[in-house]
Nucleic acid binder design. Structure first.
Lengths: 350, 350
DNA sequence: ATGAAAGCGCTAACAT
DNA sequence: ATGTTAGCGCTTTCAT
């Protein structure tokens, strides 16, 4: 028996064995009471065990449990950039959903780099994570890490299904079309597009398709397009580019709130104003959109619902359904940037 | 020996034993190769092992490693709200720093609730996390979970030291004073204060003290104070309150960028403009401040440095230094909201 | 240079 | 109702 030096404040780790000894039972019984099963324990015995746990300050060792069970009760999340409010909200919602189910959340940033995504995937895999939520920065993430692995993955922020992997996303095309249609209803005939662009721009972004849909349906010509990075700086430079020339569109559809904020900054700096000179509708519905000036009319993604959904899939008894694609609808949130709302009547009292 | 049914695509988990068998060595050798130590292995043997690993698709099991080593090579981060851009940046920087050192990061949100903070702390502890970074929403977080534990903690976003625990933070007082002094230099005589307030508002926020310092030093009277929650909504309602009356200050110091954004929304809705009618200086220096309209003059916290510092402490061989307080300076970033910069000359080409 | 084996703390099937 | 015990996959000391 090892005795602790009295001056040491760091007690040696208390194990289930110690508790068992103290309570005068076997370690199995301790397990039963800690996990509330799988066997019943007599109330009196259980009380003694609980007491022992209390007195000794026993904490179960999650690593041992993870090893035994083959599950660390932990999910992994990969986003391009958790500093992007849209992904920050996503991460927050995922953490919440996971936490409610007793899962911890590992968060990782990929900066939309294939290499980093892969590293994190590999890392998560070696940690035996119970599932990973991948909001890839790439339109076509490399999932070869996953073959032959039993680590379930769900793809977030997707516009379409992907062979063998469950995916979740919003209907980008319909959403964008709704937004552009709204601009059309405001009487705009020249509607530009500021689009994001992913690192490996292989496939079309469906928001662009939606923009086109609405234009064609109204018999309008394609306005100017600027493709830029998915951040404020990208929006800013796109805005400078699109609005400094003499022939500028009277409205733009912007592929994310973050970019829209940059676009508006550019517009303001050019001495123009929103929505008087340029009307804007953007995409995402992040908190950023509500508190920009003017507040942005935007297509809100149901982030919490999607996060819940993904976590549910990953933590369900049966595992996620291969290849399913869950599509969510966006909601057009009308604020000032499209020209609808007057300054003092923001839906709040004046 | 268990045979895998041929139609199954899920191979049974490959262990170090399998690799050893395949390479014709012992499992110890595999360990030596994988971990590059502690023993040397003959190049030829090592090559065989590497090959076996490749062929078999072996992945080390982190749970087993964690159990054996007593360390999951994982850090935990608790923030009040990862959706707050300031904390989002912090989380991002911490993740980066941790990742560079081979640590994964568990992220948790406390919503500034003592109970949640404690739950996460307990959870992290049972996971044997190598260290936790706690950006508490409370001025006086409950650290009783920690006694007798060997889980090091560092407190982030602190204005002062705390007995026995290393802390990191910015010099709130000096920073705030610098900001307010800047407003004074602009000629303002009536400078209000919008302060955040933590859930258990026991102690003074040092930003308030800094505001006072600058006022006194200039012989100015205390302007109006509104205390509100640390979010956009809080700033908004504070703004409505402070600026709708007839006697409104000509400038405000706001305790965070996030709140300042809310304050500006309120100001705009009241038909006032920034900085003409009201000059603003805020605190944090988050990306939000650069892209608001007008862009905010703000005291930038060196978030990445502090994150690096914290992670370094936690992952250092020696463990974090008990009770040390690391103070960082803020930097006054001048933009439009204080009245300094003209619209078209944002430090970029016009 | 390599191998055998103990054991990290836990769970649960199988005794009793 | 409770106890015994065999691993989970890994690291590392101590042989060889």
């Amino acid at each position: 028996m090892v005795e602790l030096a009295p001056e040491s404040t760091q007690r040696p780790r208390v194990t289930r064995q110690d508790v068992a000894r103290y309570a005068g039972v076997s370690s199995a019984v301790v397990s039963y009471v800690v996990n509330d099963g799988p066997k019943k324990v007599a109330p009196a015995t259980a009380a003694r065990v609980v007491d022992a746990i209390e007195v000794l300050g026993y904490r179960p060792n999650a690593a041992a449990r993870a090893l035994k069970l083959g599950s660390p009760e932990m999910l992994g999340l990969i986003v391009p950039d958790s500093t992007n409010l849209f992904f920050a909200e996503m991460a927050h919602a995922v953490e919440q959903a996971a936490s409610e189910r007793g899962y911890a959340l590992l968060t990782a940033n990929s900066a939309a780099s294939l290499t980093k995504e892969n590293n994190h995937l590999r890392n998560f895999r070696s940690r035996q994570v119970d599932g990973v939520l991948l909001a890839s920065g790439l339109s076509d993430p490399d999932l070869s890490q996953l073959v032959g692995s039993d680590m379930p993955v769900v793809l977030l922020n997707r516009s379409g299904p992907r062979e063998g992997i469950p995916t979740i996303g919003v209907d980008f095309r319909t959403g964008a079309a709704t937004g552009v249609r709204h601009l059309v209803e405001h009487g705009h005939k020249d509607i530009g597009l500021v689009m994001g662009r992913d690192a490996s721009s292989l496939s079309d972004d469906h928001r662009e398709l939606g923009w086109l849909d609405a234009l064609q349906e109204a018999g309008l010509p394609e306005g100017p397009i600027v493709r830029t990075s998915f951040d404020r700086e990208g929006g800013y430079s796109a805005g400078r580019r699109m609005f400094s020339g003499p022939r500028r569109p009277s409205a733009v559809f912007v592929s994310s709130d973050m970019q829209a904020v940059g676009v508006m900054r550019a517009i303001h700096e050019l001495g123009l104003s929103v929505p008087e000179d340029v009307a804007i509708v953007s995409f995402d519905g992040s908190p950023e959109a509500e508190y920009s000036w003017p507040p942005l009319t935007t297509l809100k993604q149901p982030v919490r619902e999607m996060a819940e959904d993904a976590v549910k899939m990953l933590t369900s008894r049966t595992g996620p359904p291969a290849g399913d694609h869950h599509v969510y609808a966006t909601e057009l949130v009308i604020r000032r940037s499209c020209g609808c709302v007057q300054p003092s009547f923001e839906g709040r009292e004046p």
